[in-house]
Simulated assay, not measured.
Amino acid sequence: MDWSDLPFFLAVARTGQIARAARALGTDPTTAGRRIRRLEQALGERLFEQTPDGQHLTAAGLRLRDQAEAMARIATGIGHRPSPNEPVHGSLRVSVSEGFGTWFISRHLGQFAERHPQVQVELVATSGFLNPSRRETDLAVLLARPRRGPLVTRRLTDYALTLYASEAYLAQHPLPDADALPGHRLIGYIPDILYAPELNYLDELPVPVEPQLLSSSINAQHRMIASGAGVGILPRFIGDADPGLRPVLPDIAIRRSFWLVTHRETREFAAVRAFADWLITLTRREQRLLTGE
Rank of each mutant, 00 (worst) to 15 (best):
Q67T: 13
L57F: 05
L64R: 03
A21F: 10
V96E: 00
M71S: 11
R34P: 01
L64P: 01
T76I: 03
S91Y: 13
G54F: 14
P82V: 05
E45N: 04
E86S: 09
G44L: 13
R63P: 00
A75T: 11
E45L: 11
A75P: 00
A21K: 06
R93D: 06
R73W: 07
R93P: 02
G33F: 14
A75Y: 07
T76R: 09
P52C: 10
I18A: 15
A24P: 00
T58P: 01
E40V: 12
A24Y: 03
P29S: 14
L57D: 01
L62P: 00
E45Y: 10
G54W: 11
A22D: 02
A68K: 06
I18T: 14
D53M: 10
G79K: 11
T30P: 00
H56C: 04
F48A: 02
R37P: 00
L43K: 08
T76L: 04
P84N: 12
V94C: 06
Q41I: 14
A72F: 07
R23P: 00
A68L: 05
G61F: 03
S83G: 13
I74H: 04
R35S: 07
M71N: 05
S83V: 11
R81D: 04
E49H: 12
V96L: 02
F48Y: 07
T31V: 15
A60E: 03
M71Q: 08
A60D: 04
I36W: 04
E86T: 14
N85Q: 06
V94R: 02
Q55G: 03
V94D: 01
T76G: 04
I36V: 15
E69T: 12
H80P: 00
P52L: 12
A19H: 07
L47I: 09
I36A: 08
P84S: 14
E69M: 08
L47M: 06
Q55H: 07
A24T: 08
A75G: 06
E45I: 08
G16K: 09
R38S: 15
V88Y: 01
T51N: 03
N85P: 00
A24D: 03
T27P: 01
R20P: 00
G54A: 14
R81K: 13
A59L: 09
S95R: 12
A68H: 07
G79V: 12
L57V: 05
R46N: 02
T51R: 13
A68V: 15
T51K: 09
G79W: 10
A68P: 01
Q41V: 15
